[in-house]
Amino acid sequence: MRTEDFLRDITAIRGLSGDEGPVADFVADAFRPYCDEVWVDQMHNVIARKKGGGPKVMFAAHLDEIGLMVVNIEEDGSLRLGQVGGVDPRILPGQRVWVYGKDRLLGIIGAKAPHLLSAEERSKNYQREDLYVDLGLPPQRVREQVQIGDQVQLEHRYTALQNGRVAVKTSDDRACVAMMFEALKQLQNLRHEADLYFVATAQEEVGTRGAITSAFALDPDFAVALDVCHADTPGAPAWRTHKLDSLVASMGPFIHPVLRGKLVEVAKEQNISLQTAVVPRSTFTDADGIGEARAGVPTVLLELPLKNMHTTVETLDSKNLREGGRLLAQFAVAVNEGWEDELWT
């Protein structure tokens, strides 16, 4: 499968945080031909192992997606919404959504029309509490179909823009799962000493939870967390954003400096462009959960810049994504037994 097709397909599959079963199965099936063993654990983490006799390396990109949840059903059958992960309410009015009740039902997110808003309401953004899903069904039928706690997924539309740019929901962080897929394909023709674990983690969006448990279970020697960061966008603070077409190696107290140096070295040797981001505190990525597992795991964070994060048009550069896969594969090749002694000297 082409990596672009993998990205197109994986972003369509349901996998809201906490209930990632369907997307986990998809990833397990896609990774299996390129690995020695693949399993899905009780948290819905997908763990794909490519065996080696050297140090144990964990790569992690999360497969869960943000979404909405039914928290109440109004008398007229409108569904009120809570969130699973950080959904920006400003993008919701006008969205099409899938409601996973007894059947999968298409709905739309509606809001009070601008004509009906008070002057005060008009000056503010819509809040999630003001919005609702309309299924078009009479209230009784809604109640037969839908219950409190049912999941609501934003509709998937894959848009190939010019110049290799792609806009699609859930690029955060399935673009990085695609990066691991690309790395696995490239590793078929490479020799590696390290014992490699590619982990598609669950529940990152609600607190890097899958990374916490999978890192405990695997007990790796080193880890590379993969996530998205903000690409340059008009009006955004420049120090928070990065060029769309180059990978980012973050640095900060949660990132192991020597291991990061190793990653930068590999990128240089391979002529892969890398930018630097400074993350002064918690990274709010799987790197946090993995780094603190057991007695601590030296961890680095590689990031893929993305425009419009947490919207349905998360935009990335597909060439950059493939370069990320190449960097991961080459990093995996470079890891050797001697690294453990070098990390703090």
């Binding site: 654990d41 009780q42 948290m43 928290v71 409190i148 706690g149 939870r209 448990t213 405990f216 279970a217």
Partner: peptide, 24 residues
């Protein structure tokens, strides 16, 4: 029984679930 979606708060369940390699 009722179905509860709480936008705030937590219980011991949160800690148990993330213990070791994860607990359903």
């Amino acid at each position: 029984v009722q179905r509860e979606v709480l936008a705030f708060g937590g219980t011991d369940g949160g800690a148990i679930q993330l213990s070791r390699g994860g607990v359903p």
